[in-house]
Design a protein around this nucleic acid. Structure first.
Length: 568
RNA sequence: UGGGGUGUCGUCAAGUGGUAAGACACAGGAUUUUGGUUCCUGCAUUCGGAGGUUCGAAUCCUCCCACCCCAGCCA
């Protein structure tokens, strides 16, 4: 393999861990975790976190757990658990035997809560949700103590036990940490740590009707698992004092260090679960795995490879400032990977019939084509050539603009791996005036696509023998949103206003070379001169081949044409 | 107007007192049977702003400005 070695840039988290290891903190041990809530599908932003946690652990000879943060049964579901597991595996990471659930710790967590109550550091509050909000104060005004704050340890213990036993309805009581209602950090104003939810949990069934809140369960779960560095996103920065407070009060042996980094934003898409759910539920896309979605399953179906995603995550870096990474970098990463591994193939998206007037009507030749010029070990294949061919409609111009060096009346071009042909006639549809067919002559001396006399041709076109071609449907994808930052719009505008109405274009009756007749679902090809395409793993069948365009090739002609048009 | 963060090229991002890495994008050029790939070349006299300390500041100090997050019994 000629894999280009890319040295990841240093980042502040790696630096912190390196120093900790150097200082023999945690006896030099490094243990991270990826803690998704099973309430949605993983997206490229999660991939950043997954890659960060797993590779940091790997780099320092440590381990990384996967832990489902399943403390809110009203929002979570096994469907998500399964998809998350397969996505993490697909991206390329192995959690070994360390797949955990916060719900594994419910008993222990309950005991910790009881301990807090016994120590007078937590109390049962019987205020309503609205009242709790009122008592909390505001950003600029301190809160005030709940009237239930002074309840005795005995009463709290009794009430909490009865909460667990199901004696009260949802919302009747909550368990709160007793910290400081005047703290400028709202998280410290006696945060709720347990609430009543009389619903079944996807793993614990009906065993519990009280469930711990994130702030209480997360730090303790980390501690229970012996996590050394608990990496999370920026919005949890204000929760860190609470994370530390709980671990300090309970005097646990393992007190992980929480470190926050900026979540990923990608241009021309959205990465908030709420918005992605909305797109799925309102039918703007076909599902979580719609190839336009920035979800792992969508990208997989689109033809992205795990390597390209991992590479992307490495290149974007890790820092604390809000940023929007250019989609062009992601596209660069897939092209880089696919260029090395995708077999080349010829496919015509919008066929234009070409008749080679001087080619024997019944003759068929099998011409040699290289499967991947980047990798000779991938060998060659035979491609049939005959009198009637298809070429790409946009490769012919009756009135060619400057710098257009493809086919035009009287002009000679090369058919890749075949012959030089010269356009000698144009047949038009009488009704529409549209070019219906081209007549060309070929030079038998140019077999294979080159000429002994050294004559140069400017253009090389891809083509397919009409009689041998396979029909296929191709989906061309474009950015999901028309503006770079649909997420950044202030509440006034609905992000969906910016959806790109042309993000999906279905092209039927495409003509592709016969070697693709048994293409496997999910396999990726480069259609020469067009882009990378993969066989759709959901809709493609033996009857109808369906391809998704992963990404176009870089297209300098398109750039030139755009520029020329601007100058007019 | 409380608290917590962040400001280095169009976009990411190194840099931690010694004189602005790298990547993507962009612009030129070379090679090319993919207008692909590959290969060269160019691309921040300047680090949100203003002062100050210092022989020397993106790095230290002061003030200011901008942006992000927090008032779920969500995570």
């Amino acid at each position: 393999m000629t894999a280009t070695k890319f040295t990841p840039p240093p980042n502040f988290i790696r630096n912190i861990i390196a120093e900790d290891v150097e200082a023999k903190k945690n006896n030099g041990r490094v243990h991270t975790r990826f803690p998704p809530e099973p309430n949605g599908y993983l997206h490229i932003g999660h991939a950043k976190s997954i890659c960060l946690n797993f590779s940091l652990a790997a780099e320092f000879g440590g381990l990384c757990n996967v832990r489902f943060d399943d403390t809110n049964p009203t929002k979570e579901d096994v469907e998500y658990v399964e998809s998350i597991k397969s996505d993490v595996r697909w991206i390329g990471f192995d959690w070994g035997d360390r797949l955990f659930y916060t719900s594994d710790y419910f008993d222990q967590l309950y005991e910790y809560a009881v301990q807090l109550i016994k120590d007078g550091k937590a109390y049962v509050c019987s205020l309503s949700a609205d009242q709790i909000r009122e008592y909390r104060g505001t950003l600029t005004k301190p809160g005030k103590d709940s009237p239930y704050r002074p309840r005795s340890v005995e009463e709290n213990l009794d009430l909490f036990e009865r909460m667990r036993a199901g004696e009260f309805e949802d919302g009747a009581h909550v368990l709160r940490a007793k910290i400081d209602m005047t703290s400028p950090n709202l998280n410290m104003r006696d945060p709720t740590i347990y609430r009543i939810r009389k619903v079944d949990h996807h793993r614990t069934g009906s065993k519990w009707c009280i469930y711990p809140m994130y702030d209480f369960s997360h730090c303790l779960s980390d501690s229970i698992e012996g996590i050394t560095h608990s990496i999370c996103t920026l919005e949890f920065e204000d929760n860190r004092p609470l994370y530390d407070w709980i671990l300090d009060q309970l005097n646990v042996d393992c007190h992980p260090q929480q470190i926050e980094f900026a979540r990923l934003n990608l241009s021309y898409t959205v990465l908030s679960k709420r918005k992605l759910v909305q797109l799925v539920e309102q039918g703007d896309v076909s599902g979580w795995d719609d190839p336009r979605m920035p979800t792992i399953s969508g990208m997989r179906r689109r033809g992205y490879t795990p390597e390209s995603i991992r590479n992307f995550c490495e290149r974007i870096g890790v820092a604390k400032r809000d940023s929007i990474v250019d989609m062009a970098l992601l596209e660069y990463c897939v092209r880089e990977d696919l260029n090395k591994r995708a077999p080349r193939v010829m496919g015509v998206l919008r066929p234009l019939r070409v008749v080679i007037d001087n080619y024997p009507e019944d003759q068929v030749e099998e011409l040699d084509a290289i499967n991947n010029p980047e990798d000779p070990s991938m060998g060659t294949r035979k491609v049939p050539f005959s009198q009637v061919l298809y070429i790409e409609r946009e490769d012919f111009r009756e009135d060619p603009p400057k710098k257009f060096f493809r086919l035009a009346p009287g002009r000679e071009v090369r058919l890749r791996y075949a012959y030089y042909i010269t356009c000698v006639g144009v047949v038009k549809d009488e009704q529409t005036g549209e070019v219906a067919e081209l007549h060309c002559t070929y030079d038998p001396e140019t077999r294979g696509g080159w000429s002994k006399d050294g004559r140069k041709v400017r253009g090389t076109l891809h083509w397919v023998s009409a009689a041998h071609s396979l029909e296929a449907e191709v989906r061309l994808y474009d950015r999901l949103f028309e503006i770079a930052n649909p997420d950044g719009e202030k509440d006034g505008a609905d992000f969906k206003t910016y959806l790109n109405p042309n993000s999906l274009q279905v092209v039927t009756s495409c003509a592709i070379e016969p070697s693709l007749s048994h293409a496997e679902p999910g396999s990726v090809y480069q259609f020469e001169r067009l882009g990378y395409f993969c066989v759709d793993s959901v809709d493609s069948s033996d009857k109808t081949l369906m391809f998704n365009r992963t990404v176009t090739l870089r297209d300098s002609w398109a750039k030139i044409e755009k520029k020329e048009q601007k100058q007019k």
